[in-house]
Computed example of a mutant assay.
Amino acid sequence: MNEIHALLQRTQDAWNRGDGAAYGACFTDDATDVTFVGTVYHGGEEIGRAHQALFDSFLKGTRLFVQVDDVRCYGDTAIVVTRGAVAKSEPKRLDKLATYTLVRVDGAWRIAAVQKTKHKSLMEAVSFRFQPATKPTAS
């Protein structure tokens, strides 16, 4: 588990430095990154290149905040669910969720896929209010 947390910390550190190459190096060569706006990037090199362009423009000076909520290991594969945010200062809440599929390649964990989603708490609250059966048992 420590190695998995260390990998996610490396992604966070690379983001916070604005280092697209280091960020992309955390992914496998055939990785898939689905952003919360729906953009799909393929492969660590493309993910790193695209993020460098973002770090140099829209995301310049931002920091990545990540909280690991769940880790489940299945041999050399792990599923990790996180809450997070991207902001220039400490966010009021972690409003994005990400589900990572990690694989162990040559003894090291790397990201094979990640799907990011913006948490819409108002929509969720309305759903739970009008259809309580939709509320998960674990919160």
Rank of each mutant, 00 (worst) to 15 (best):
M1I: 06
N2R: 09
I4S: 09
I4Q: 01
I4H: 00
A6M: 05
A6P: 03
L7E: 02
L8E: 02
Q9C: 02
Q9L: 07
T11N: 02
Q12F: 01
Q12V: 06
D13V: 08
A14E: 00
N16L: 11
N16K: 10
R17M: 12
R17T: 05
G18M: 04
G20T: 14
G20S: 13
G20I: 01
A22E: 13
Y23D: 09
C26I: 07
C26L: 09
T28N: 04
D29M: 06
D30C: 09
D30Y: 10
D33C: 11
V34R: 07
V34C: 14
T35L: 04
T35F: 11
F36G: 15
F36C: 04
V37A: 13
G38I: 10
G44M: 07
E45W: 04
E45A: 15
I47N: 12
I47C: 03
G48M: 07
G48P: 04
R49D: 09
A50E: 13
A50V: 05
H51T: 01
H51M: 15
Q52A: 08
F55R: 13
D56A: 15
D56S: 15
S57L: 11
L59D: 05
G61C: 13
T62E: 11
T62D: 08
T62C: 11
R63M: 04
F65A: 03
F65L: 00
V66E: 04
V66R: 00
Q67W: 06
V68T: 03
D69I: 02
V71C: 01
R72D: 11
R72K: 09
C73H: 09
C73F: 03
Y74K: 08
G75C: 08
D76G: 12
T77W: 01
T77V: 12
A78P: 00
I79N: 01
T82L: 03
T82P: 05
T82W: 02
G84H: 00
A85C: 07
A85L: 03
V86D: 12
V86F: 12
V86I: 14
V86K: 10
K88Q: 11
S89I: 01
P91I: 04
P91S: 04
L97H: 12
T99D: 00
T101I: 15
V103M: 03
V105Q: 12
D106A: 15
D106M: 05
G107R: 10
G107A: 08
G107C: 10
A108Y: 13
A108H: 11
A108Q: 10
R110P: 01
R110L: 06
R110V: 01
I111W: 02
A112Y: 03
A112S: 08
A113H: 02
A113E: 06
V114W: 00
Q115T: 08
K116Y: 12
K118M: 08
L122A: 06
L122R: 07
M123H: 09
E124K: 05
V126A: 14
R129F: 06
Q131W: 08
Q131L: 15
P132I: 08
A133E: 14
A133P: 02
A133V: 08
A133T: 09
A133K: 11
T134F: 14
K135F: 05
T137D: 14
A138V: 13
S139C: 15
S139G: 12
